[in-house]
Simulated assay, not measured.
Amino acid sequence: MTEFRVGPSARTTPEGLRWEPSRRWVRGRKGDVTVVDSRHPVLVWEPTGVPVPLYAFPRDEVRTDLLRPAANPPTGTHTGSRIFYDLVVDGGLTENAAWTFPAADLAGHIAFEWFLRWDSGLDHWYEEEEEIFVHPRDPYHRVDALRSSRHVRVGIGGTTVADTRRPVLVFETGLPTRYYIPREDVRLDLLEPTGHRTACPYKGTARYWDWNGGGEVPRNIVWSYPEPLPAVAAVEGLLAFYNEAVDLVVDGERLERPVTPFTESLTT
């Protein structure tokens, strides 16, 4: 079971869903068509799976004329969801783009896939006038990027690949501290850029590097945000290493390698 932080207006259904109303104006588009335009969205956290929120919307704030009962509804997803919908926009079909929850508290609401499933859902989401990526931002999730003078060394297979006294430390709820290091303090000759990209609703889009210094080291072990979101502007262009797979020494103290949701995805 996922352990959730609870806000003053949060409620929990018998099915284990946690939900609370949001004050944000949320819109979702497929191509040039606005499918959702809601000033009364509800944030929903499911008890299993990825511990990030999604939105459910009152039916009268959804273009239900674009929805059709799903031809091939999935099973075992979205906490006992009873009804799935395919989305038809300008002749294009998006299967299982939306669904309803069985919870009585959420009767009359429709939820949509975001970007965690890349082949389903809408193309663009907005909170107020700001485009949001990957998934809705969790109001109980905090990310702080702080400039520091700590002494940080990063080792891979016995080789020091980074050594700095001017890192930026990123403190993010539920994750280990990440140490972002200026390029001038990194052995770039031991890294090779890859085509891998990921997106984060709190930080932006990251690009990655492989280690090319030998040994069995996970792919895409280093990342950087060339154009981070304003809230973490201090990390622009800096490089970070997965604590889960490198040797980190901070102010002379060797840090243990943490086990995180990323551990299983780090493969050689």
Rank of each mutant, 00 (worst) to 15 (best):
residue 16 G to K: 03
residue 4 F to K: 12
residue 171 F to T: 03
residue 206 A to G: 11
residue 178 R to N: 10
residue 65 D to I: 07
residue 46 E to A: 12
residue 111 A to L: 08
residue 160 T to L: 15
residue 80 G to Y: 09
residue 173 T to D: 03
residue 214 G to Q: 03
residue 44 V to R: 01
residue 7 G to Q: 14
residue 208 Y to C: 11
residue 259 V to C: 09
residue 242 Y to H: 15
residue 174 G to P: 13
residue 89 V to W: 00
residue 192 E to V: 12
residue 205 T to F: 01
residue 258 P to D: 12
residue 11 R to A: 12
residue 205 T to V: 09
residue 159 T to W: 02
residue 150 R to I: 09
residue 175 L to E: 12
residue 253 E to G: 03
residue 162 A to D: 02
residue 77 T to F: 10
residue 202 Y to I: 11
residue 190 L to M: 11
residue 246 V to I: 06
residue 107 A to L: 11
residue 81 S to M: 07
residue 234 A to G: 08
residue 31 G to R: 06
residue 43 L to W: 07
residue 212 N to K: 14
residue 188 L to K: 00
residue 220 N to P: 00
residue 174 G to K: 03
residue 49 G to L: 14
residue 31 G to T: 05
residue 14 P to S: 10
residue 195 G to F: 04
residue 228 P to R: 05
residue 119 D to E: 15
residue 134 V to D: 07
residue 76 G to L: 12
residue 31 G to P: 13
residue 167 P to S: 04
residue 101 F to D: 04
residue 41 P to F: 02
residue 56 A to Q: 02
residue 18 R to Q: 13
residue 100 T to L: 04
residue 199 A to F: 10
residue 143 V to Y: 14
residue 84 F to K: 06
residue 100 T to G: 09
residue 108 G to R: 00
residue 170 V to T: 09
residue 1 M to Q: 09
residue 32 D to H: 06
residue 251 D to T: 07
residue 156 I to P: 07
residue 48 T to D: 05
residue 78 H to P: 00
residue 149 S to E: 14
residue 97 A to H: 00
residue 125 W to T: 00
residue 74 P to W: 08
residue 86 D to R: 04
residue 117 R to I: 00
residue 266 L to W: 07
residue 202 Y to A: 12
residue 130 E to A: 14
residue 169 L to Y: 01
residue 236 E to D: 09
residue 141 H to K: 15
